[in-house]
């Protein structure tokens, strides 16, 4: 069965790019435009992998992750934060929020698939 991926990013172009890339590899992709929308989606269903941007209006990525981790269905969902800075502080925060990993922006489609494969097998 195809794996289900949730992509959360406020930028339409980035969202489209990630979506197209993952779809091309056979994943089923759901997209959300900010943390709040993503959280509402997560309350209703589960995913095999969640990829979220950090800087977004309404609700940022880390807050979204923290809230999502409180949902029983998402205790174990791999969640990767997209960030433009891979600083210690950022990583510590990511870890504290309950993220599984991080990925630095910019990235290319190959890198994205690499990670998706690593996470979901």
């Amino acid at each position: 069965m195809s794996k289900q991926v949730l992509i959360v990013d406020d930028s339409v172009s980035v969202r489209q790019m990630v979506e197209a890339t993952l779809k091309s590899a056979g994943y089923i992709v759901t997209a959300a435009k900010d943390g709040l929308e993503a959280l509402n989606i997560c309350k209703a269903r589960s995913f095999d992998f969640i990829l979220t941007d950090q800087n977004m209006p309404n609700m940022d990525g880390l807050t979204f992750i923290k809230s999502t981790r409180e949902l029983p269905a998402h205790l174990r969902t791999p969640i990767v934060v997209l960030t433009t800075e891979a600083s210690d502080a950022m990583k510590a925060q990511g870890r504290a929020a309950g993220a599984t990993g991080w990925m630095v922006k910019p990235f290319d489609p190959a890198k994205l698939l690499e990670i998706a494969k690593k996470v979901m097998g």
Binding site: L75, G94, R95, A96, G101, W102
Partner: peptide, 15 residues
């Protein structure tokens, strides 16, 4: 360093 994984905070969950 362009990506990586954190230790999972929920310890025995297989990650």
């Amino acid at each position: 360093d362009s990506f990586g994984f954190f230790d999972d905070t929920v310890e025995a969950d297989g990650f």
